[in-house]
Design a protein around this nucleic acid. Structure first.
Length: 375
DNA sequence: TTCCAGGTTG
DNA sequence: CAACCTGGAA
């Protein structure tokens, strides 16, 4: 009695038990065999959770295997140069994750004797470890009864309890954490968290969820009401600003001039073709000559236009206009860059190149990784 | 071609 | 609250 329609109801203890048992049984039978599910090593589980932030499983797998083959433990990662870490992260995106993970590995070695801290406060304090990653690693690797609320879990819970709050708000997340907490079977939080994530990734999909295959069946309140595709509440996405960039292909004896972006901010620490934003009312060749002169100290003769490449970042989209350039002088990086290198074909995997650089080089016929000519 | 999903940081 | 990337689906 006293039922209100303000917020969805919390499950009582027996409902919660039935739901979590159904989820665990389904997960044991249906879970995908993923590399990070074959280990109990907290380091490997941590690396996986960082890579899986904002990134799909299928994309992560090859990166994960290469990364752990090269850095099998936290000491190996701590000893490495950031350049090499970023090279292994090349193409995975959100490079701040790699910079933070590398810095965190060094902190673990300096402050925790090379042992990943299982103390929630200490682990959560490492750079790149937020509420989700802390909950995931602490529950999966250390067996602690912690909630791990990621996008998949939020979607599952919004539907299961027909929660019409926006999970991006503090209030919405608090509500979802209460549901997740109510479901956690003591001692099996890691398994339940993974079951919820697996359900979100394989059955309870953002669009066209596969409800007939769902182990929660008629317990799902949104499905019972036929509103599963309206949960979580839709988010609108505004137009991304459009920018115009120019970039130079400078070749010397078969090598290509590349520059390294400063370690902070967009694509920090990654290598790219020299170039930058075109000013309002500026001609492309003038813009390119200006950038090469001001930030590299090079006098450039801008030649033919070679191609235009489109790319979308998190908060804007660009068209990059590529020009062949001849230059005089030795590059002296400044401004957006802190290094340069004449890139040979064998360097394409050893330097962390930006996605748009890979796209540009592929378009120009260079055998970069990921391009048809490069495999 | 366009749209969308997704954790942490400063 | 804006910055931060890419790939997969519509």
């Amino acid at each position: 009695m006293g039922e209100t329609n303000e917020a969805a109801l919390q499950p009582n203890a027996s409902e919660a038990l039935a739901l979590s048992q159904a989820l665990l049984a389904w997960y044991r039978a249906q879970r995908r065999d993923l590399p990070w599910r074959r280990t109990s090593d907290p380091y490997r589980i941590w690396v996986a959770e960082i890579m899986l932030q904002q990134t799909q499983v299928a994309t992560v797998i090859p990166y994960y295997e290469r990364f752990l083959a090269r850095f099998p433990d936290v000491q190996a990662l701590a000893k490495a140069e950031l350049d090499e870490v970023l090279a292994l992260w090349q193409g995975l995106g959100y490079y701040g994750r790699a910079r933070n993970l590398h810095a965190a590995a060094r902190l673990v070695c300096e402050r925790h004797g090379g042992i990943i801290p299982s103390n929630p406060h200490e682990f959560r304090s490492l750079p790149g470890v937020g509420p989700y990653t802390a909950g995931a690693v602490l529950s999966i690797a250390f067996g602690q009864d912690e909630v791990a609320l990621d996008g998949n879990v939020a979607r599952v819970l919004c539907r299961l309890f027909n929660d019409d709050q926006d999970p991006r708000t503090a209030k919405g997340r608090k509500e979802l954490r209460r549901y997740a907490q109510a479901l956690l079977p003591p001692g099996q939080a890691g398994e339940l968290n993974q079951a919820l994530m697996e359900l979100g990734a394989t059955i309870c999909l953002p669009r066209a969820p596969r409800c007939p295959a769902c182990p929660l069946g008629v317990s799902c309140r949104a499905r019972s009401l036929g509103v599963q595709e309206e949960r979580p509440v839709a988010k609108r996405r505004g137009e991304l600003p459009r920018r115009e960039w120019v970039a130079a292909l400078v070749e010397d004896e078969g090598k290509i001039l590349a520059v390294r972006r400063r370690p902070q901010g967009l694509l920090g620490g990654l290598w790219e073709l020299p170039g930058g934003e075109v000013l309002p009312d500026e001609e492309h060749p003038q813009a390119l000559a200006r950038i090469l002169r001001v930030h590299l100290g090079l006098e450039a003769a801008v030649g033919e236009q070679l191609a235009t490449v489109r790319h979308a970042y998190s908060h804007f989209q660009v068209k990059v206009h590529l020009y062949r350039c001849a230059v005089r002088g030795t590059p002296t990086p400044s401004g957006p860059w802190d290094g340069f290198h004449w890139l040979a074909s064998e360097d394409y995997n050893a330097y962390g190149l930006t996605g748009v650089t890979l796209k540009a080089l592929a378009r120009l016929g260079f055998a970069v990784p990921g391009s048809p000519a490069g495999s």
